[in-house]
Amino acid sequence: MKSFKTKFSNREAAISTAALPDIIFMLLFFFMVTTVLRKSDDNLKYKIPTAEQLKQIDEKSLISQITIGTPKDTEKYGTEPRIEVDGKFIEVKDIVAFIMKEKDKLPMYQRDQIIVMLKADEDVPMGLMTDVTQELKKANARRIIYGASWKVEEKP
């Protein structure tokens, strides 16, 4: 019996951590690949509306985003809803130029398939929204997505 005891107690118990860097690197690569480095759209405050008939769009490379909401820095930019693309404010008339620029980034055969993601605050008036969609029609970017989040059933 004694021989058993000595046999085990003398051994140093250590978990091999040699594989730890590999695991961490795997996670790291996952996040590196999924990260989309875009200029922050942080100048606007917006809460997208909720809906039920949502569709997930898989063609990520075709999507260009337009954000509409109220500026965070109200002292500088006022409280009127503004349009933001790539981290800077633009006017309604600049949308056509923006879409053309986005189309140029796509390969030739996909230019007409551009999808515009409209992320607008729920309190934006429809007047502004239709002005924007009117410009999108002019730029011939007619596939759009009204950005919305999943509707959670309200408790009665």
Partner: peptide, 27 residues
């Protein structure tokens, strides 16, 4: 690796491409 991982964790914004899809009429 941890340091890099934490950096990417913090900067990642998982973008949602959900919404109501629609096609506009020609201009």
């Amino acid at each position: 690796a941890f340091l890099l991982l934490i950096f990417f964790l913090v900067t990642t914004t998982i973008q949602s491409n959900r919404g109501l899809s629609a096609t506009l009429p020609p201009y």
